[in-house]
Amino acid sequence: IDVRFTVNGLDVTVRVRTEEIAERVKELAKNGVDWREIQRIAEELNK
């Protein structure tokens, strides 16, 4: 599942395995978490 969001004007796409992880990623993006941090968290959750 590809999750797309915009952080500080940057369009970011993170690929995740499940809808649940996708929701977590969207939540982080909404809360203004840095995209590199979101990427790292997504990689952890995908394991």
Score class of each variant (00 low, 15 high):
21 I>P: 00
31 N>I: 11
3 V>M: 06
13 T>M: 10
14 V>K: 00
2 D>E: 15
34 D>Y: 10
36 R>C: 09
6 T>R: 13
38 I>Q: 00
18 T>L: 03
23 E>G: 08
4 R>P: 04
36 R>G: 11
9 G>C: 05
43 E>R: 07
15 R>K: 09
7 V>N: 05
34 D>H: 13
25 V>L: 15
8 N>L: 07
28 L>K: 01
3 V>G: 01
33 V>E: 05
32 G>T: 04
14 V>F: 11
12 V>S: 02
39 Q>W: 13
30 K>C: 08
20 E>A: 14
34 D>G: 10
19 E>C: 08
6 T>H: 12
24 R>E: 05
28 L>E: 03
28 L>S: 02
9 G>M: 04
23 E>K: 13
22 A>L: 05
47 K>Y: 12
17 R>K: 13
32 G>A: 07
29 A>Q: 06
39 Q>I: 15
45 L>P: 01
46 N>M: 03
31 N>G: 07
16 V>K: 00
8 N>G: 12
18 T>G: 03
42 A>V: 14
32 G>F: 07
4 R>L: 09
16 V>Y: 01
7 V>Q: 15
21 I>Q: 06
1 I>Q: 05
12 V>I: 14
46 N>W: 07
30 K>L: 12
45 L>C: 03
44 E>Y: 11
31 N>F: 09
20 E>D: 11
8 N>C: 08
18 T>R: 02
23 E>M: 12
11 D>T: 15
1 I>Y: 12
18 T>I: 02
3 V>I: 12
3 V>W: 02
35 W>Y: 13
8 N>I: 03
35 W>I: 15
28 L>G: 01
18 T>V: 02
25 V>E: 00
12 V>E: 03
2 D>T: 13
6 T>K: 12
6 T>M: 11
38 I>W: 03
43 E>C: 11
7 V>M: 09
5 F>A: 02
2 D>I: 14
40 R>Y: 08
39 Q>S: 08
45 L>K: 02
6 T>F: 09
26 K>R: 15
18 T>H: 03
1 I>K: 04
29 A>R: 05
40 R>Q: 09
40 R>I: 08
10 L>K: 14
10 L>Q: 13
37 E>V: 12
47 K>H: 14
47 K>F: 12
41 I>Q: 06
31 N>V: 08
18 T>E: 02
29 A>S: 06
31 N>Q: 15
30 K>R: 14
46 N>D: 06
12 V>C: 07
27 E>L: 13
14 V>Y: 06
5 F>G: 02
23 E>C: 06
27 E>T: 11
28 L>D: 01
46 N>I: 02
41 I>R: 05
14 V>T: 03
22 A>M: 06
9 G>K: 03
19 E>V: 14
8 N>F: 04
26 K>L: 15
44 E>Q: 08
13 T>K: 07
34 D>E: 11
25 V>K: 00
32 G>M: 08
3 V>L: 13
21 I>T: 03
20 E>N: 07
16 V>R: 00
22 A>G: 08
11 D>H: 14
28 L>R: 01
35 W>H: 07
15 R>E: 05
41 I>D: 01
36 R>H: 13
11 D>G: 07
39 Q>K: 12
13 T>C: 07
34 D>C: 10
38 I>T: 01
26 K>D: 02
22 A>Q: 04
5 F>T: 03
10 L>V: 15
9 G>V: 01
30 K>F: 10
41 I>G: 01
41 I>W: 06
5 F>E: 01
4 R>W: 12
7 V>E: 05
18 T>P: 00
41 I>P: 00
29 A>N: 06
8 N>Q: 09
17 R>P: 05
23 E>H: 12
40 R>T: 07
15 R>G: 04
46 N>C: 03
8 N>Y: 05
25 V>A: 01
39 Q>L: 15
33 V>P: 01
10 L>I: 15
18 T>M: 02
25 V>F: 02
13 T>H: 10
26 K>Q: 09
9 G>E: 05
43 E>D: 14
22 A>K: 05
34 D>N: 11
13 T>P: 01
19 E>K: 14
25 V>Y: 00
43 E>A: 11
28 L>A: 04
44 E>F: 10
21 I>G: 03
24 R>G: 02
23 E>T: 12
12 V>M: 10
38 I>E: 00
27 E>C: 07
39 Q>A: 10
33 V>Q: 05
15 R>F: 12
25 V>G: 00
19 E>T: 11
44 E>W: 10
32 G>P: 02
15 R>H: 13
3 V>S: 01
1 I>T: 05
35 W>Q: 04
1 I>D: 02
39 Q>R: 11
4 R>K: 14
40 R>W: 07
37 E>M: 09
47 K>D: 11
37 E>P: 01
45 L>Y: 06
24 R>H: 13
22 A>N: 01
47 K>M: 15
1 I>M: 08
25 V>R: 00
12 V>Y: 15
14 V>N: 00
21 I>M: 05
11 D>K: 10
9 G>N: 06
14 V>R: 00
35 W>C: 04
